[in-house]
Amino acid sequence: MALFLQQILNGLTLGGVYSLVALGLTLVYGILHVPNFAHGAFYMAGAYVSYYLMTTLGVNYWLAMVGAALVVAALSMLADRLVFHPLRNSPELHDMIAAIGILLFLEAGAQALWGADFHRMPTPYGQIVDIFGLTAPLQRLLIIGAAFALMVLLHLFLTRTMTGATIMAMAQNRDGAALVGIDATRVTLLVFAISGALAAIAATLYAPINLVYPSMGNLVITKAFVIIILGGMGSIPGAIVGGLIIGMAESFGGFYVSTDYKDIIAFVLLVVILSIRPQGLFAGKAA
């Protein structure tokens, strides 16, 4: 029983991280309808900014997380202004190629600044906690708590505030939102900022129990695409539920089958679910 509960804990940890990354990705897709392959590079950049702030400048873990969120939010908005906005009237293929270009550029930049070696981010939460006989690293509990708190805050922001309502209006009908006076440029920049901040926070939460390296975002963004397809393209509930499904599947599959196949499980699950429900689990639901 203890091993089963341990896998649930591991699944919630992975699912929380995946859901945060997928949420940022699905928000941008809802506005631009362009798969942002550069999102994985923003995730990686967030980890490196936090690592630099903590190890070089001696900044507190939480302040480093806030700093990384602000830096990557600004970087994400800059990518929109310099790359995506000029291509707004171009075929979608051009946006996809440009996003891959941003990904390669940021990975090369990280490698030039910090090298290709793996780095370990320190954490002040390395303690082991005993909960009802289940031992769990405090950092994992922190990931679960922070990830789900952010999901709730994002949901409340999108559904209970005027700014959130404008974002949802843009996601549903960009042209119609512009006709009623919504500033498309301002909303787009805000969405990119939220997307980048979510990626940076997810990376800062997960990096202390993983490693920091230039290509760390590649597998994460691939799984994030699986999640948003699984949950329904542009669906926020789908991104959350899809992330948890993939996290649980990887945790239990890696333990009961083999860790060698852990990263394949997400794609097998995608094929199985889409063969039953091709539109995704939450197709058509934006919030």
Rank of each mutant, 00 (worst) to 15 (best):
T161G: 09
G67T: 03
T123Q: 08
G176L: 12
I102V: 11
N60I: 04
Q279W: 05
L106T: 14
Y61E: 05
L20Y: 00
A197I: 09
A207R: 10
I229D: 01
G115Y: 10
R174V: 12
F132Q: 11
L5H: 03
L78G: 09
M162N: 14
I194P: 03
Q111S: 15
G181K: 11
A2E: 12
I264C: 13
L179G: 05
V180Q: 12
F282K: 03
P137L: 07
T163R: 10
A266Q: 02
V129R: 12
A99S: 15
R160C: 11
V268R: 00
M216Q: 14
A286D: 13
A184M: 05
K285P: 06
A165R: 12
L106Q: 02
L104I: 15
G234I: 10
V28K: 01
L205P: 00
G164W: 00
A169W: 02
I102D: 04
D183V: 06
E107T: 13
L269C: 05
V66N: 00
I245M: 15
S235N: 04
L25A: 01
A266F: 01
A108N: 13
I143N: 00
L78Y: 01
L189N: 02
H33A: 08
L281V: 03
T222N: 07
G24E: 03
A2W: 02
V220M: 15
L150A: 01
F192L: 05
A178P: 07
